[in-house]
Nucleic acid binder design. Structure first.
Lengths: 127, 127
DNA sequence: CTGAATGCAAAGCCTTTGCATACGG
DNA sequence: CCGTATGCAAAGGCTTTGCATTCAG
């Protein structure tokens, strides 16, 4: 694995972010350090970093992929009132998968994508 | 609401499907009945039907939207090998939400969007 | 040195849209 | 009749890719 400046800065910027930026936003962030970087390089490196397991590639279904420097497995909670997205810390504690269920036994589960929506702690306190 | 032949056939084809086809597949299905239908019309009607709540528009993050004639709330299982998408019959049986968990108690849960991925029954049998 | 990574630009894929025409109610 | 829906084709947004050049190890 080759450590180019482009690759290094892209990873650094992404780790700094906590808000799941898209490729275009990462491109603009990195351009502050490397003005001549190309969008293609950003895409190639994001792909490379995701394939190496150093970042995560997400899809919230808005037509644009999002990237996450936090590679710990975690899901997302979206508040329908204030519209913030917070990480769900331990999905398996909150919604444990029943390993003994026949449906589960018939398949091999690699993982899941979960988004819970409702009112966050702050917004539900007011109701 | 205007019932054109195109709209009718698109809805009928989609209700017949159980495998969450993309717009291109629906286009090809409908073309058997209406050979001169345009792809634009298919997209416009899928959008219209989804907005009217008669079908559901899904996004599994493969770059292509999928459509579902089954509007009952249900989740999906995606096989990473054969790429089919099947319905999860009773999510609450397989992954029950722990109502007593502190994280849950602090929030008001309206619903969730869940996608489990892995190998389907057929594909996992061969491994 | 040498192959992997880059910049640039063009192309690809899915989807949306503008416009004149057709057609449902 | 009238306005919505259609067909056609062009354009749009995001992403990928081909190619010559540069650069890390």
């Amino acid at each position: 694995m080759r450590i180019t400046n482009q690759r290094k800065i892209i990873l650094e910027e992404l780790i700094k972010c906590s808000h799941h930026p898209g490729a275009d936003e990462i491109y603009n962030l990195v351009r502050k350090s490397i003005p001549r970087i190309s969008l293609g390089t950003v895409y190639r490196n994001l792909e490379f970093l995701a394939a190496s397991g150093m970042i995560k590639k997400l899809d919230f279904g808005n037509g644009q992929k999002r990237f996450d420097g936090n590679i710990e497995p975690h899901d997302h909670f979206r508040c329908v009132n204030c519209n913030t997205i917070e990480d769900i810390p331990f999905t398996m504690d909150i919604m444990p998968l029943d390993e003994n269920h026949m449906w589960v036994k018939k398949r091999i589960i690699y993982g899941m994508r979960l988004e819970i929506y409702g009112l966050c702690a702050a917004c539900s306190a007011g109701k």
